[in-house]
Design a protein around this nucleic acid. Structure first.
Lengths: 143, 143
DNA sequence: AGATTAAAGGATCTTTTTATCCTTTTTTAA
DNA sequence: TTAAAAAAGGATAAAAAGATCCTTTAATCT
């Protein structure tokens, strides 16, 4: 479904969101341990999230990553768009370059329906919400 | 969503199904032209489908591929399972090795719902149905 | 100022996926 | 019974994704 980059990125940003909600700043080292991901690779992913302004990075001792207040409202759809592009929202299930209601692939109509559900779900799920679930021990990020 | 192998495989098998429904046998050459896919690569994919008995191959002059009567009822879910495995039905959206209702990742509950819809759709869509749509010019396999 | 800490960035390596090429096997028809 | 056609199979190549290593930059504390 999602690339490894995207999986790590989602886990990382959700973890940072949770920690931010508890007023903690977290280092790459901590992140990769807590979400069980390869550290150097996760660093690259975090760089992308930083460049795209979804997380804020702080260099030097006592540095790390946080999410700024207003960015806690970021939707998963946005994180995924940054890391995997929007093929998942727009691409044809059978890989046709052009495929739409006018000239649909055999799966098109069945597909758009499910994809819309997916998109709606991702567009209505914010980091804030997921951080709360995590804080309430309703979910886990590891294993 | 699906691998290239799977995309080509789905397009190919749907095309073969359509041709079979019109009593035509089709060669690899024709298939790769009609679905616009790399021929040698498509050959490998067709070999997998043949080994798994979803299509029947016939060697020699006037050879090619057909789908046997009873296999026209094959569901897309089965084709995908053969080519991509069942990660798409069972894997965790965030890539956790273990993720279920007991210890769910932050996306788990939202995800299973959509994935069930996807699975239901794929399990209820047969080659026969798609071949009919194609015959009625309701859909296309190229472009 | 100097030492230390942590992220950023560049280069490189590994694995997997995608793709091609060439030989072998099977079948058909002249 | 030989030539041709078409799928099967093996080997290899190219591209993309995943992962690691090392150097540079920025910030902090003593």
């Amino acid at each position: 479904m999602f690339s490894k980059s995207c999986e790590y990125g989602l886990r990382a940003i959700i973890f940072i969101a949770q920690q931010t909600s508890k007023n903690n700043k977290v280092s790459l080292n901590t992140i990769s341990k807590e979400i069980d991901s390869p550290q150097a690779f996760t660093a690259k992913v975090l760089q992308q999230l930083t460049k795209n302004n979804l997380v804020k990075s702080i260099k030097g001792p006592y540095g790390g990553f946080i999410i700024e207040e207003e960015k806690m409202n970021t939707k998963l759809s946005e994180v995924i768009r940054v890391l995997d592009g929007d093929a998942i929202y727009t691409g044809c299930g059978l890989g046709l370059k052009q495929c739409d209601a006018n000239s649909p692939c055999p799966l098109h109509h069945r597909f758009v329906e499910i994809r819309n559900d997916l998109r709606n779900m991702l567009e209505s799920t914010s980091l804030q919400i997921l951080a709360n679930d995590l804080n309430g021990d309703l979910t886990i990020l590891k294993r």
